[in-house]
Amino acid sequence: MAPIPGSGLAKGLAVTLRTMTKKTVTAQYPDVQPELPPRTRGVIGLFEENCTVCMLCARECPDWCIYIDSHKETVPAATPGGRERSRNVLDRFAIDFSLCMYCGICIEVCPFDALFWSPEFEYAETDIHELTHERDKLREWMWTVPAPPALDEGAEEPKELAAARKAAEKLAAEQAAAAQESAAAPEPGEEDQA
């Protein structure tokens, strides 16, 4: 059936009127802070206690915007007659956010969980040099890193948890077997009767 002439005009009016009664989508930042999704890429925090100065992040960074300085220290042997160990000590860890393209490769690549995404985004500066965040500032961002979002229902168990649980279960089973054995050992006859 052909549409009634002018129905398109009425439809147009209806659309605008309906939109008027709906809630607006205007974000009232900075009066109202935006609701950011989990895993928002705002700024990178450094948990420097975990950093071993392996330099993987600096090497993988496509922009080469991570600067790391370190020196080696020797740690005296833990046991008498043991070997002295050498340890990397972090002197400088800086990320230049004027170069960073927020790809997150450094965070992905870090084998020791020393880098994290933080949702904070209000760190604009008037001087571009101040966008290079040194290690103390990067350490401060760590306080703003949210807890990792909960896993989806029915999701596979995280590998480390699975491994830990398996080990614990194995241990418990061994202990139970040992206890049973020690309990059963004095009177083996009873068990047979039962």
């Binding site: 605008t16 009127l17 607006t24």
Partner: peptide, 13 residues
Amino acid sequence: KVMAHMQGRLGPM
């Protein structure tokens, strides 16, 4: 204001 709300905006605030 009306135009803003018809376009899903808030208009002058």
